[in-house]
Design a protein around this nucleic acid. Structure first.
Lengths: 338, 338
DNA sequence: CTGAAAGCGCTAACAC
DNA sequence: GTGTTAGCGCTTTCAG
């Protein structure tokens, strides 16, 4: 038979039992120094006996501090963001914070409403991989008006003056493209991401690398996509082009994986006839039909760094050093570009 | 220049502006019926003007209800759990709840401490894919002592009297094994999961199906593993056995994918020489070197169902129909068992 | 329909 | 060292 639900123990209960004031108990709980040794140990004993657990809602209201931070990502199913979430949790947990993770589904209205809710819940700070259109600034304004610290992740926005932590997308684009060039490719196509900084930056790096190598490709060599399904379709289009590309640089691993599927289905050999590279080093990259070369962006590190900066910003009283941290990309060459 | 942080608007501010009581405003905010039409619209107008957002910490303290629920999963990186998380969010958000997602890393101490924290934060309910050892009951007891509703997900525990939502693991084991039998396999090996209900149930179904078909396999045909790396090693062992298995049923997709890697590396052909099947239908299953046959367990549905039951339990005053929901597995046959 | 009184469980700031 | 006084911003209960 399940025990009858007990009313949670409160500070007051302990105080009464021991004939001390609530304040004294509160101080012991929080580890304040100014409590007599003997009193402290009596309180501690009773706390253990009763298994007292502080009520964080009350504590938050009184202290005007929740020790909760919000993390908004566009898609938890994408392992890149799941990994960031992991990095964030791992960093802030030991510091006594909890994360509330929200999924915006890449929908900017949903995102905005999540942000409002989190602020309503009085989170101490926000980590935001935003899906806002590049120029929108309403949301950032509202966050700033509230004066709550936040850090942008993965996607940078000119409209926001917040610190930013992400990969160096330009470098990613150059690294991937140069790798293909070194492998002897000349007709390098690109599956471009959505019009946010990662997509734009990688495309820019791609073009820069081509230019530096004196290569010219037709406009039709760049097609937009976001995930494996659209990457699959994009690749089908690319394969139909007349001077057929001899390489495809996918905006992320899912698009590259989708592209590989289309290529293999068309009976074209990877890497002999066409090479493929992605970005993200998702966890299953080397289990694919042809192990996928990719650019690692250290997602866990991104999460850690961002969490770190946020915690620092929360601690700081009134200044905000607008810092940007760019994580260096690492090339991981596998079978698909052999 | 960033706007100076504004002090958040409170009920009191609106009340003063309009010369009404705080109570009246509070009622309007919550949509209570007993407010004059004119008063209501004046309040509403001012609320919009000032962009009032309720302080949920204060509200929670007063109402003794946070409208937050906790979700504890062993590993967010595993897309199965990410998908459950998605299903949960999608279900409860429209009802005004938020989820706090915690990662236990498959570590039962960490899990216990997460649960305590969530209870300290006064969540209204808990969704728990627990990593407790099968017989441990301390944690469940503590949750029940608090009287807070919770629902077990994916892993069932005899020690807990809570409702449970998960896949029908026995059926999964039989479905997968029978599929292999139908495909002509006779020496079917199994990569078994950890000693929790999913692993145990699937292994049980596996044995039951073998028995029903009159097949006998040596004990050495069953090896434990949890992820792609250990699945890889397990498969290497299996391949070294003398009557080499002609099929491997992996506890989950990662183990099966790892197994495929080992098999292909050994120069053995899938599915001609050995067939492979997994469980989970992870999102990249058909992008693998050989598209992986699998059993789909409708993770999103699990999340939805569980969230649904929890919400119901929260609403219910004082009874707990100990319900169990088993989601029917679906076979997805791909290349690896052709 | 409206509001006054009385907290929710805890902490900040300052007295003793 | 310890306790007192005042809230935090909101809701509950119950009178008007």
């Amino acid at each position: 038979m399940p025990n009858a639900p007990t009313n949670p123990v409160r500070l007051k209960d302990i105080a009464q039992d021991l004939n001390v004031s609530v304040m004294t108990v509160s101080k012991v709980v929080r580890g304040c120094a100014d409590v007599g040794a003997e009193t402290r140990s009596r309180v501690l004993a009773r706390i253990k006996e009763l298994n007292y657990q502080p009520n964080w809602v009350a504590r938050s209201l009184a202290a005007r501090r929740t020790f909760m931070i919000g993390l908004i990502v566009p898609d938890l199913m994408h392992s890149f963001f799941a990994e960031i979430a992991k990095g964030v949790s791992a960093t802030i947990r030991p510091l006594g914070y909890d994360v509330v993770i929200c999924n915006s589904e890449e929908d900017c209205e949903l995102e905005a409403s999540e942000v409002e809710r989190l602020m309503g819940r009085q989170v101490d700070g926000l980590l935001l991989a935003s899906a806002q259109p590049p120029s929108s600034l309403g949301l950032f304004e509202r966050i700033e008006a509230r004066g709550i610290p936040y850090v942008l992740i993965d996607r940078h926005f000119a409209a926001s003056s917040a610190p930013y932590v992400g990969a160096d997308d330009d470098a990613i684009g150059r690294l991937a493209t140069n790798h293909l060039i070194e492998r002897g490719c000349r007709r390098i196509a690109h599956i471009a991401g959505p019009p946010l900084t990662p997509g734009v930056g990688r495309a820019k790096g791609y073009r820069a690398a081509l230019r530096a190598a004196g290569l010219v490709v037709p406009d039709s060599y760049v097609i937009a996509a976001t995930d494996d399904a659209s990457g699959y379709r994009a690749a089908q289009q690319l394969l139909a082009l007349d001077p057929r590309p001899d390489a495809i640089f996918g905006y992320n691993d899912p698009t590259a994986a989708g592209a590989m599927k289309a290529i293999l289905e068309a009976g074209i050999r990877i890497p002999d006839e066409i090479k493929v590279i992605g970005v993200g080093n998702v966890h299953y990259s080397d289990l694919l039909r042809v192990p996928l070369s990719t650019i690692d962006q250290s997602s866990t590190a991104i999460g850690q760094q961002a969490a770190d900066m946020l915690i620092r910003a929360i601690g700081a009283k009134r200044k905000r050093p607008i810092k940007t941290v760019l994580i260096d990309p690492i090339l991981i060459a596998r079978e698909s570009t052999r």
